[in-house]
Amino acid sequence: MRFKILGLFAAVALVAACETAPDESAAASGAGTSASGSTQMSSSGGTMASRLGPIAGTAEDLVVNVGDRVFFDFDMHTLKPEARKTLEKQAAWLKKFFVQKVTIEGHADERGTTEYNLGLGDRRANAVKNYLVALGVSPDRIRVISYGEERPVALGSNEAAWAQNRRSVTKIVGAGS
C-alpha cells in the first residue's frame, strides 16, 4: 500500500526499489551455505523475530543449503561447471548424512519428442548419479527415475522456462516433493 502511493513518483519509486532489493536477494539466497536462521525486523512493534533455518540433514536442508538441482543444455547430459559444483556439495552432504537415500529425477524440456525425452531424462539422471558415485557416494543409496518432459517446474513455452526444466533433481526418499 505504501509503495503504491509512493509509486506515483518515479524518483521515490526508484529509491523504494533500491531499498527492497537486498530483501529480495536475501529471500532468494536459499542456495547459500549458512545453515543458521536469518534474522529480520518484523514490521510490527519492533519485536525481534528469528526465522529458523532447516534442520541439518533434512530434505529442506538439501534444497535450501546445498541445492537440489542442476541444469543441462538442450539435448545434452554433460555436467556443466556449476552443476559439478552443486553436485560436489551434494556428495559431501550425502556422505555427512549417510542414512539418506535419494532419488535422482531426470527431466527434459518440451521441445523434443516424448519417447526420446524419456531416454534423455534417464541419461541426465544417470550422469548425476555417476558423478555422485565417483565422489564417493554409494550407488546403493541412489535410485534414478526419468520423467522426460512430463514434470515441468517453470511455466510457459519459452527459452527461460525450458532452461529451468532441463534439469535433474535430487530428492530424499520418503520426503514429499
Partner: peptide
C-alpha cells in the same frame, strides 16, 4: 520397446 538402464536405452 525400449529399456533404459544406466543412462542407456
Amino acid at each position: 520397446m525400449s529399456m533404459a538402464k544406466g543412462g542407456n536405452s
